[in-house]
Design a binder for these strands. Structure first.
Lengths: 187, 187
DNA sequence: ACATAAAGTGACTGACTAGTCAATCTTTTT
DNA sequence: AAAAAGATTGACTAGTCAGTCACTTTATGT
């Protein structure tokens, strides 16, 4: 069954996010997932692997959510869409988002997991970077632009959460955050 | 003696940063600090308290480093200086910087430690926020500006590290990063 | 209906670690 | 220089938890 695997992953995501992965015993995860202690290890042969898989799962979820279904229009509109979707994801899935940050900075991930997770985003990053260099819309190094995009979307997510934004207000905020980025980058 | 306390804190900062605080036994910290196991608990009554104190220590170090000695000129020049100093600090003290991010997202800090650490920055933030609202240089909410400042300086630190920047090149990069922010914010 | 395989279980264990404390060493006081 | 106070020590303990494995339950094939 793959259902059990998903149950365990979901339980892990929730408990890791709320209490910290370092502070969450595998027994608690199993219980929360409604399976026996030993069953967890049938699906994930060690806690390390579970942590890695949780990270990859979250990145996959994110990638699937933000990737523009209809790609091709102008580079700016593609970037706008990615920008929008990432912020929405961060606001709508606070547990996932929180855990993403936690694991990124925790020294808990194996190198393999980091590489694998990066590979998921290679497609998206490739499109982005190609667009940036082709159009040379912007006089900044591509890698710095990527950093800026990540950083400013994170700032936007934090602010949106702080004010518990929804619907129109959130959409307004997202638009404005993109303008701020776009004007800055075009300096 | 306060020297021992400092030794323990420094050992903890190094080991926490490299291996993760969750993964660093108190015994290892004591050994690395050149004191006995029990001595650590004479200075920090629990590991939780040690972690909290490490976090506060780092924040103090940062505050001391970035605060403009000569304050008073224009708001923009003050902000420029804070911006500059924070990035320099992040680049020069990679262990401190790394651990700051790690602890922020780790669910390891007590609420009291977070509050105490925030208090250290209340002065700086106050000046900043007052400057922003007084001059109304910028049509964005103050809290969002703060988020943007933190986010964009972090991006600048990452990029500087990625390219192992130093001296003039680093200074150029810092200047540019501020321009990007400033132009964006004035949208 | 039976046999064989696969999936699930949970009590158990070996390793690890935060925190203790009685004993020892060092510093200060008288 | 003796005594008292304070600091340091590290062997020890009590608790926790990742991972195991002999057994049970469920699914599949004949």
């Amino acid at each position: 069954m793959n259902k059990k695997r998903a149950q365990i992953l979901n339980a892990a995501i929730e408990l890791f996010s709320l209490n910290g992965a370092w502070n969450t015993p595998t027994a608690k995860i199993a219980k929360h997932a409604g399976v026996a202690n030993g069953t967890l290890f049938n699906y994930f042969s060690s806690k390390q692997i579970l942590v890695d898989e949780v990270y990859i799962e979250i990145k996959k979820d994110l990638a699937e959510f933000i990737v523009p279904a209809s790609l091709g229009k102008s580079f700016e509109s593609n970037l706008r869409l990615l920008w929008h979707n990432y912020i929405i994801w961060g606001v709508r899935k606070p547990l996932h988002y929180n855990l993403l940050l936690q694991l990124r900075n925790s020294e808990m991930l194996s190198e393999e997991a980091k590489v694998k997770a990066d590979e998921i985003f290679q497609g998206i990053m490739g499109i982005l970077e190609k667009g940036m260099s082709d159009k040379k819309i912007v006089p900044l190094p591509i890698k710095y632009l990527s950093e800026l995009i990540m950083a400013q979307t994170d700032a936007a997510i934090n602010f949106a959460k702080l004010h518990q934004m929804e619907k129109e207000k959130l959409e307004e905020h997202i638009k404005r955050s993109f303008s701020v980025f776009w004007h800055g980058a075009k300096t």
